[in-house]
């Protein structure tokens, strides 16, 4: 279950050696990992541990710090919800003193609270609110400068919603699901088709295929007594008989 997270199948041997060996501390390797991050962004791949290795290098070598890379890492981690990836990344962002080395003002201090807010909405399954805020005028900067570059970002957010819905519902109204996915009409229908989910023509309810999380059963776990528990008593009885 976690093995894909620990070692994504798309991770190359070069990256694997960096992530798992002591070379991860070598500042001269940062560009390899940064290139890999941009590869992930272009091709809808995700490798949390490799990205954490970048943040680790930034933590130890403040002069390597590149705010755009950090923001991209956080955007990728955002859609791993409800896994803790986003928090793990933020944990490594040390408080940094006013940085005079950068040519332009550091965008991270203004964007980090926005991303934290978006993460909270996803973690709390407030999907309609997420879309409303994400598409608001105030976040135009984030969309135009960052998420637009991240291939499949909106679909990744939808995948978060789908994970939550799949676990919780056996069927859900199209209207509700549409608000979670920020899709309607033909787009929504196409999305359902891709998932293989069917919509009831009369009720417009979407049926969620059964999976381990949306099947419930009341069980009573009964105690079962194992023979070894009784060994002492039985052997005692035999010895005395």
């Amino acid at each position: 279950m976690t093995s894909e997270w620990l070692v994504p199948s798309t991770r190359s041997e070069l990256i694997e050696n960096l992530v798992s060996g002591v070379d991860r501390y070598n500042p001269s390797n940062v560009s390899i990992l940064e290139d890999y991050l941009y590869h992930q962004i272009r091709s809808e791949e995700y490798d949390c541990l490799a990205n954490l290795a970048i943040l680790k290098l930034y933590q130890f070598n403040p002069d390597l710090y590149n705010p755009d890379v950090v923001i991209n890492i956080l955007i990728k981690a955002l859609t791993a919800s409800p896994m803790p990836d986003f928090n793990l990344c933020v944990s490594l962002l040390d408080e940094r003193p006013i940085n005079s080395q950068l040519d332009e003002p550091d965008p991270l201090p203004s964007i980090l609270p926005i991303l934290k807010g978006l993460h909270a909405l996803l973690f709390r399954c407030r999907f309609p609110a997420f879309w409303e805020i994400y598409n608001s005028e105030a976040l135009a900067l984030l969309r135009d400068n960052y998420t637009v570059e991240v291939a499949g970002f909106e679909n990744a957010v939808r995948a978060v919603a789908i994970r939550a819905v799949r676990a919780t519902f056996t069927s859900i109204s199209s209207k509700r699901l549409s608000s979670y996915l920020n899709l309607s009409g033909a787009e929504l229908a196409a999305y359902f088709q891709k998932l293989g989910w069917t919509v009831d023509a009369s009720t417009l309810a979407v049926t969620i295929p059964p999976n381990p999380d949306n099947q419930i059963e009341a069980t009573v776990v009964q105690e079962s007594v194992k023979l070894p528990q009784l060994v002492k008593i039985i052997s005692h009885a035999v010895a005395k008989a």
Binding site: T168, F169, A205, N214, A218
Partner: peptide, 30 residues
């Protein structure tokens, strides 16, 4: 406590663990 939502109806199922007696009886028998 497990549950699932069918459109708007929440169905709930609870797994219970029966009380454990064996340990008590084994200890006292011994």
């Amino acid at each position: 406590l497990n549950f699932v939502i069918d459109e708007n109806m929440v169905h709930i199922a609870e797994s219970t663990i029966g009380r454990r007696y064996a340990g008590w009886f084994i200890k006292n028998t011994e």
